[in-house]
């Protein structure tokens, strides 16, 4: 089949192949290095099941929270004109570039037992986030929200303001327009954003371990379990990593067929 635009230049194809190799080879190496005979035993272990379940539930909860909070923020960034929009967007993106450990420290400074908000919350309600599953969800939301907001903002912008304008001329209020026009048009992008946030939450490690600690069943998510296991048993850590890989790839593929043209 001849491309009417001509042959693709090697200057593009070679780096593209390198990029693919860089991403795929380490994962393949991990699959090859795994002790397959010992895998079934690993899969039956109680800590693994607990950690996997906790990872999936906290990541999903975090993704939902990200949608509830992120969708409105993305709309504000995409549809409202105001003076400090650039500043607001920059602030929203900051957690993207923060090392996760810093995110954990920041969360503790805010929500820890002696934190800015954590201390009054503890005094009034007797509840504190550290060492609880809600704390895990909180750190997941903190690191995932920027991904969701930026992705959804892009989707809102791409779907175009004209449809909003058309809805307004037909008498729709701004809320109705948001509900019936803006969101449905941007839906694929919104779902892609939510999945991106979910994936980020699933892999989250640094903030969780700094802010929430590590206890089986309450705060020990998969990355924590893998990290701790690695200290004593490399083989087991590899097997756990493989489980994580299979689950993440599986979920992404399952969603891809249905929802995510773009991923």
């Amino acid at each position: 089949m001849k491309d009417p635009l001509g042959r693709p230049p090697a200057l593009l194809l070679i780096p593209a192949a390198l990029a693919t190799a860089l991403l795929v080879v380490p994962l393949a190496a991990m699959v090859v290095a795994t002790d397959w005979a010992g895998l079934p035993e690993q899969l039956r272990s109680e800590p693994l099941r607990q950690a996997l379940w906790l990872s999936l539930t906290t990541a999903t909860t975090a993704a939902l929270v990200c949608l509830v909070l992120g969708l409105p923020l993305a709309w504000v960034l995409a549809r409202l004109d105001f003076r400090f929009r650039g500043v607001l967007r920059a602030l929203v993106v900051v957690p993207l570039v923060l090392p996760p450990v810093v995110a954990g420290v920041a969360l503790r400074t805010t929500f820890g037992r002696r934190g800015l908000l954590g201390e009054p919350i503890l005094e009034v309600t007797g509840f504190s986030f550290p060492f609880t599953t809600w704390g895990v969800v909180l750190s997941h939301v903190f690191v995932s929200l920027p991904f969701v907001v930026i992705a959804v903002e892009g989707a809102f912008r791409a779907s175009g303001r004209e449809y909003d304008a058309a809805a307004a001329t037909l008498g729709a209020s701004r809320w109705t327009t948001f509900r019936r026009v803006t969101v449905p048009l941007a839906l694929p992008g919104i779902i892609a954003g939510a999945v991106l946030g979910w994936a980020r939450a699933l892999g989250e490690f640094g903030a969780t371990i700094t802010f929430n600690g590590n206890y089986p069943g309450t705060t020990q998510v998969m990355p924590n379990l893998i990290y701790v296991t690695r200290q004593s048993d490399q083989e087991a850590a590899l097997a756990l990593s493989l489980v994580m890989l299979v689950v993440s790839v599986g979920v992404l593929l399952a969603l891809r067929d249905r929802w995510l043209g773009g991923i």
Partner: peptide
């Protein structure tokens, strides 16, 4: 039972030093 099983001793210390535990 502890509330957390930390990944290393410095992390354990830090949880107490920061007042979380």
């Amino acid at each position: 039972e502890p509330v957390s099983l930390e990944v290393d001793v410095k992390a354990t210390l830090e949880k107490v030093a920061s007042g979380e535990a």
